[in-house]
Nucleic acid binder design. Structure first.
Lengths: 214, 214
DNA sequence: TGTCTAATTCATCATATGATGAATAATGCG
DNA sequence: CGCATTATTCATCATATGATGAATTAGACA
């Protein structure tokens, strides 16, 4: 009776699907661990512990740590696609549409999990960081810049504006979802959208006849 | 003659000040290394290599890695003080003053180096990250909120606005100085200020009679 | 039933890390 | 001069990491 408290697990193939798919469990654990610690700090062993599985099994299914990461981060989320879906609105409502779409997407736990991982890793200096940055920036910024160009702005200016938009969105997402800082965390999507949309729209519209002289 | 190419360094105290202060060299190397990789990923050994010194010497002078970090990050920069110095302007120019002051401060290499370190570490999940976040947010956000309250806004609303300002500033600093993304890197302080100030001012002023219905 | 394959853990490797305690060499004070 | 102090490196520890190959157990299909 007093034996299977934290049983050291028998070797070999388990009888039937004990607790479902071990592979899926690993992927899930990895997702959480990567999101929490970032690529470098997350360890295969910790992931295995979390999935209640031997570390070698991780290698069996996913080969290398990089492989695991790639698989975890891939597929379910296509940031450029999400963003692009916010583009079919008139120019003067673009800011709000973008902000709301992105914030809404991040409410889905899968997006949030991957998003946090990506942001954490992007800020780090690791190889993963570099890769992610490249992809993310080409695709994401490219998409936004494209839409801005369609409002009749020349390339370089559109590029600047897209970057400024990224600036505001990245900051907001980091503070709300990575740092989880109040009061941003508790705000509803609607409230936050109302606050951020004007700023983003301003970036999209560019510097108007604001205080430039003085 | 063919011997001191990359001499394996003699033991014991060197004759007079060979290459100046080793302690200073270590601190400098640490600063760079921390800024580049963040607290966790930076290794004492890499720091020692960079300072061209044995790793044990780092412990001799700074005791522990945490001690080194504390010493490197302390002192020369008081973020809340920098920010506070931007406060003595009329309310409607607060945004521009804040943005310009912060951007100017980050042009100083010492501020930038420490700033990047802090941002990198803050986004990570490590102990260093937690510590830094607490300090940074209490002090920094507190300062901004205080100033906003003085414009006649109640506490909770002021807190929200301060956080939104942080949102925009953090995003901009990360993209300009941590990720070093064009075209933000090449913009002059004046140009960037012109772009960011309206957004920040908007956050400070709160949601005006903007598109709220519909 | 017998054999192949898949799922799982175990035992190890090579490497990197932070840390500690000598050992060695020069300086400086008495 | 002699002796304490300081600056510096060397040799090691204990631990963690990613990775690999073998061992063990069960299912599947003939």
């Amino acid at each position: 009776m007093v034996e299977s408290a934290s049983a050291p697990r028998r070797r070999g193939r388990p009888r039937k699907a004990g607790s479902g798919d071990a592979r899926a469990a690993i992927a899930e654990a990895a997702s959480a661990e990567f999101a929490q610690k970032g690529y470098d700090a997350a360890s295969i062993r910790a992931i295995a512990r979390r999935a209640e599985v031997d570390a070698a099994l991780v290698h069996h299914y996913f080969d290398s740590k990089a492989g695991l990461f790639a698989e975890v981060i891939r597929l379910p989320v296509r940031p450029d696609r999400i963003v692009r879906s916010a583009f079919e609105v008139p120019d003067e409502r673009l800011g709000e549409s973008l902000v709301r779409t992105v914030l809404m997407a991040w409410e889905r736990t899968t997006v949030k999990s991957i998003g946090v991982t990506v942001l954490r890793s992007a800020v780090s200096d690791s190889d993963a960081g570099r890769l992610i940055r490249q992809y993310l920036l080409r695709e994401l910024k490219g998409a936004i810049r494209g839409r801005v160009e369609r409002t009749g702005v020349e390339r370089v200016e559109a590029d600047l504006r897209a970057t400024l938009v990224l600036t505001q969105m990245a900051g907001a997402l980091i503070i709300r979802h990575v740092l989880e800082l109040e009061p941003l965390v508790s705000l509803s999507v609607d409230e936050l959208t109302a606050r951020l949309a004007p700023a983003v729209q301003g970036h999209l519209d560019g510097v108007s006849a604001e205080a430039d002289d003085r």
